[in-house]
Design a protein around this nucleic acid. Structure first.
Lengths: 116, 116
DNA sequence: CACAAACATTGACGAGCGTCGATGTTTTGG
DNA sequence: CCAAAACATCGACGCTCGTCAATGTTTGTG
């Protein structure tokens, strides 16, 4: 469920801000809520931040387990949630799994949130 | 926990984007996660949207219960969560309770999310 | 091939969340 | 003062979520 497919693009012809805006659909609300849930967790927020702050913008599980003070299975679980929601991407090189932030994913999610 | 007090203002002197950004603190991650959790729910996202789309940008519980297809106690519960997180504000006039979006709350929350 | 390292997966547990019916509280109207 | 309307609160239920120990899987190494 990549962030880019969360919602259809807003009608670009809407040049004038309408007096009464349109209510978000039940389907879109469910999709957006699912992605927001993926981010609405202290450990996952820190994981995102740590990946972004790490060298070359990528980090493996071993880089994240110790500073997060959580067990390795828990860290892997959180990373999986973030990958499945389209925030992070995973690339395996050798024994290591490197995680990277999907460019623009956080920004588009923030954009969707701001226009609810 | 108003949104405005979620995080201290970023250092405005940071004119140049640092090679390695700073990791969000455990405390800030917890606070931001709590506010995001308040928004990461389909019913609450629709409530926010319905309040914004309603006449004069305010709506009472009776306006929201039927279109949301949820019981009145459930709607009141969701509204309370949104008020306590600083997204909505409540003003009682007579028997009715009118809910309004706190100006800029969603935008600042989105801004915090985008800079994690 | 055997062993170790890095992750992923599984199963289980406790805590928290969304929902509702029932009930309490406050305000208006007669 | 009493009845009705609009909400809020309470208590309870099922479900989801975050966490961990144990185990499985894959890759590199001697």
């Amino acid at each position: 469920m990549p962030v880019a497919e969360l919602l259809p693009l807003r009608d670009l012809a809407a040049c004038c801000a309408p007096i009464t805006r349109e209510v978000i659909s039940e389907l879109d609300a469910g999709r957006l809520a699912r992605t927001l849930k993926a981010v609405a967790d202290p450990a996952r927020l820190r994981l995102i931040s740590m990946v972004a702050a790490h060298e070359d913008g990528e980090a493996c599980v071993c880089d994240l387990t110790e500073p997060l003070e959580l067990s390795q299975p828990t860290v892997s679980h959180h990373l999986k949630v973030l990958v499945e929601s389209g925030i992070l991407s995973r690339s395996k090189r050798g024994t290591w799994a490197y995680y990277t932030i999907v460019p623009g994913s956080l920004d588009s999610l923030a954009g969707l949130l701001a226009t609810v």
